[in-house]
Structure formats: C-alpha cells, structure tokens
Amino acid sequence: MQKKKFSSQKIAPYLFVAPFVITFLVFSLYPFVSAVVMSFQQVNGFQDATFVGLKNYRTLFQDGDFYAALWNVARYTFWTLLILIPLPMLVAYVLNQKGIPFKGFFRSVYFVPVLTSSVIAGLIFRYAFSSEKTGVFNQWLSVLHIGPVDWLNSPHTAMFALVIIAVWRWLGTNMIYFLSGLQGISPELYESASMDGANSWQKFWFVTIPMLKPITIYVLTISIMAGFSLFNESYVYWGAQSPNNVGTTLVTLIYKAAFTNGNFGYSCTLGVALFVIVVVVNLIQTRIMGLFRD
C-alpha cells in the first residue's frame, strides 16, 4: 500500500503535464521541424517536394515585400509599445486613487472593446477611414480645414489606422493588468516614502514604476508577440495585398505565399524568419529589462 502511493505520487505529475507535452510534440514541434525542412524545399503539392538548398533564403533576402513587411511590423510594435504601456499605466493609476466615483463602471467600459473581434473592429474602422470627404475621420478633419485624407493608401496614415485599432482594443486589458499590479503594492512603501518627504510625483516615479516592473515585462512580451504577428487588422483593411505594401505584415506574406501563390516552401521560409526575428527581439528585450536577473 505504502509503495503504491509512493509510485503514484511519482507518476502523477507526468500525467498532469501530459496533455501539454503531447499537443506540443504533435501540433507544434513536429510542424516546426517540418517547416524548417520545407523551408529548404521547392514544394509542389504535399507529395512532391525537392530540396533546393538555400534558394528560398536567397529569395527572402532579396524580397522587397519582406523588408517592407518587417519595417511595418517593427514600426507597429514600436508605436503600440510607446502608447500601450504608459497610457494604461496612467489610467490605472488615476483609477486607483481614493475618492474616484464609478470605478467599476470605468473599468468595465474600457475592457469592452477587446471583446470585439479584431475583424469586426477592423470593419468599423475601415468605414470610418474612408477616403471620401464624408468619411468619419475626414469629416472631423474638415472642421480644421484639413483633408480629405486618403487614409488607407499612404504609409503614415495607414500605420495610424492600424495602431488606433490596437490602442482602442488593448487599452482596457493592459489597464487591468497594471491595476492588479498597483493593488499588489503595499501601502507601507508609500507611507515610508512620505516620511522621507517624497511628493506624489516622486512616489509615482520611485515606488510605483519599479513595483510595476514584473507586470510591465509581461505586457511588453505579449505586445511584442502581438505586434510582430499582426494579421487580422491588416487583412480586413487591405486583404492579402496592400497598395505599395503600406499595410503588409509578415503573417500576411506567410498567408499569401501559402494560399494565394501556392509557394509552400517559401511560406515556411517566411515562418522560420518570423520565428528567428521574434526570438532575437525577445532576447534583446530580456537583456534590457533583466527578466532573469532580479
């Protein structure tokens, strides 16, 4: 009896983690290996593949669309990070003050946009960004005697149209993360800062921000992944092909290579490239933020 219990306690953890291990092996690792293999192949249908060495990678490095897409997602990630970390942090801080009425209401309202799928958000914003004089944003601008602007056809405004959906959808979610972080900060820290004569700005800078670091790293990691794998919003605005690549993303190219051009090998090459890019960016990020050091 004693022995049986002992062994079941040894086996149990493996049974608990088995679902992850199995699905990881079958649906992630195996496809990943097969992606790496196919990235060195010319694939015509799944039965007919020939090795072509580095040909796909040579194509990749000469592919103007690839660089355009990389530049787009890098800018997109940069802007979303620049806005979607400080702003939600500020809103969380404001909302966490004593004496603010309707806290629960504001918290819920800000969260609602993320419940809307990015496709539906994209549909609405697509109409709002119409190039017509009568489009919503052009109407607003006409008050200032600007425009009409051809929003979705020029690089800067196209980027703006992509970033604004992200800001609209994710403000509330990130705010809730920061709010949970704020509520975890012990009031004693603020009290002792007060005793040392800190004003409220100094308290925010020297107590709040450092204490929010773990949450910030989490939000940063998630945002980098979301930024570099952008697809839905771009697809709703432009489909698989945007004018002069103003909204092309890396995943758009992966999708297009696979399902529009039937170039399976090259689609895998792009996938491997995206993997390498995300890994490198995350390594840099952890270096800077020191995820594993403190």
Partner: peptide, 24 residues
C-alpha cells in the same frame, strides 16, 4: 524544461506554423 517550453510558446506566434499545420 517543460515550463521553459510553455514560456517560449507564449512568446512565439502560432502563425509561424500556419503552413505545416495546414499540411498536417
């Protein structure tokens, strides 16, 4: 090791596997 894989999976977008998963 398993937890490290979980973390990596969180950082890497699933869409890199679009085509091989489609094939599978």
């Amino acid at each position: 090791a398993i937890f490290a894989i979980v973390l990596i999976m969180m950082m890497v977008p699933g869409s890199i596997l679009l085509l091989p998963q489609y094939k599978l």
